[in-house]
Design a protein around this nucleic acid. Structure first.
Length: 407
RNA sequence: GCGAUCGUAGCUCAGUUGGUUAGAGCGCCGGCUUGUGGUGCCGGAGGUCGGGGGUUCGAGACCCCUCGAUCGCCCCA
């Protein structure tokens, strides 16, 4: 008889435990608290959608859609995709549920996303994001509110020092197209001297050449046309209002002229909170305005802004967090007294004390086991010459509150 | 999709130029010591050396393939 083999976890997924899981949960809980301060309403979204929800909104030519989606036919023959991001699904829900009656609508959620990528530090095939969106608001104040919330979140997580807000504008649709055309002209002239990657980007996403890490490309980035030269008056005013609003809200930022977004639906404001402490995956939170998205899904023109943040990346910056210490460990040193112990921990837990029972293994080693757990107090239930003996090791303040549970 | 490094008990790691029954610490289980005690001692369980193939008299060590991890490229939060 051969031993059955143990299945491995799927590549790029993670089993999170202990101090790391506490850090993960801490990020989520902090987000929940901050999101309520800004009055964002909680939504829960399906993990999968019809494939077209993503392919139409994100853009067929993007890497996400063309090679990173987990798509499959279900038993009814429908082609479905595990969500690679939140925004498209939320936009779909907004339209199919008629949420425009609530506009402008501020919503927040978090959960798992899926992308078929090569795993590395801060990048997984199943990863988790926080997400916040304001839908149906075309005013720059919406951008400002969202950024202020992101800024406060990072501060409350205690990681704001290592993270900087990079801010840019992509202009409105006309500005962006004019800029894009000028960039293509510029880089086309030097095509032969660009990196292989950037030669490809020239036809797929020329804006991306701007933040290439290849030194061959960087030589031509400095002289490339700037978005500011192509901004319409309206676009300039919008960006000016966002910057003024950030100053008023006390949010620090720096202009990043070559910051672009990978997904097609972005317009106007684009931003990333970036750190140098996570290696190649330095963006911890990113987003922007996507005024054109609703129309690509067949809805009415609906301006919107949003961002998403990588929970794993934030948790790595937060670092490991200690699990809460136990209030009382109850040690039963005589098996005949086990029920006394069960009663005590039950009463303690119902009264709001975290409690753990130790009543198995070598009786003489049970107290040592309890001592190693680092609890605030230890109660021992033992018998000496046939007499039940309860002893309590605790500081006076907690002793007074728990003594009664052992009488 | 491309490149580099790595993969030995549950965990962290040793394993000399390929050479008898593969080791340690921690953890786990048990015995003794201590007896208001977080100590010490002894013993035990647990490994097809990621998986498959090859070279060799002989492979945990060398070669090939494969799976996975880590770090870059790319992409992105």
């Amino acid at each position: 008889m051969s031993k059955p083999s143990t299945p491995q976890a799927i590549r790029g997924t993670q089993d999170i435990f202990g101090a790391e899981a506490e850090a993960f949960q801490h990020v989520v809980e902090t987000f929940e608290r901050v999101r309520k301060l800004y009055r964002f309403r909680r939504i829960e979204m399906p993990v999968f959608e019809k494939t077209e929800v993503f392919s139409r909104s994100i853009g067929e030519t993007t890497d996400v859609v063309s090679k990173e989606m987990y798509s499959f036919d279900d038993r009814g023959g429908e082609n479905l995709t595990l969500r690679p991001e939140f925004t498209a699904g939320i936009a779909r829900a907004y339209l199919t549920n008629g949420w425009l009656q609530h506009a402008p609508l501020k919503v927040a959620t978090h959960g798992p996303l899926f992308r078929y990528e090569r795993p590395q530090k801060g990048r997984y095939r199943q990863f988790h994001q926080l997400d916040a969106e304001i839908i149906g608001a075309g005013e720059p104040q919406a951008d400002v509110e969202l950024l202020a919330m992101a800024d406060q979140l990072l501060k409350e997580l205690g990681i704001a020092d290592g993270v900087k807000l990079h801010l840019n504008t992509l202009g409105d649709a006309e500005s962006r197209e004019a800029w894009r055309a000028a960039l293509v002209d510029h880089f086309e002239f030097h095509r032969g001297e660009l990196s292989e990657d950037s030669q490809k980007r020239l036809s797929i996403n020329p804006l991306r050449i701007l933040d290439s890490k290849d030194s061959r490309d960087q030589a031509f980035v400095g002289g490339a046309p700037k978005i500011d030269e192509f901004l319409s008056g309206e676009a300039q005013d919008f960006f000016g209002a966002v910057k003024a609003g950030l100053d008023a809200a006390g949010v620090k930022y720096q202009r990043a002229e070559s910051l672009v977004r990978g997904l097609d639906y972005y317009r106007h404001t684009a931003f990333e909170f970036v750190t140098d402490q996570l290696g190649a995956q330095g963006t911890v939170l990113g987003g922007g305005r996507y005024d054109g998205l609703m129309e690509t899904l067949g809805g009415p023109h609906t301006p919107a802004v949003g961002w998403a943040a990588g929970i794993e990346r934030l948790a790595m910056l937060v670092g490991e967090r200690l699990e809460a210490v136990i209030d009382v460990v109850v040690v039963v040193e005589d098996d005949a007294l086990l029920d006394r112990g069960i009663q005590a921990v039950s009463d303690l837990r119902r009264a709001g004390f975290s409690s753990e029972l130790i009543g198995s293994g070598s009786p003489r080693k049970r107290f040592d086991k309890a001592a190693k757990m680092g609890a605030n107090s230890i109660a021992s239930i033992a018998s000496r010459e046939g007499v039940v003996k309860v002893s309590l090791k605790a500081e006076n303040d907690i002793r007074a509150r728990i003594e009664g549970f052992f009488e």
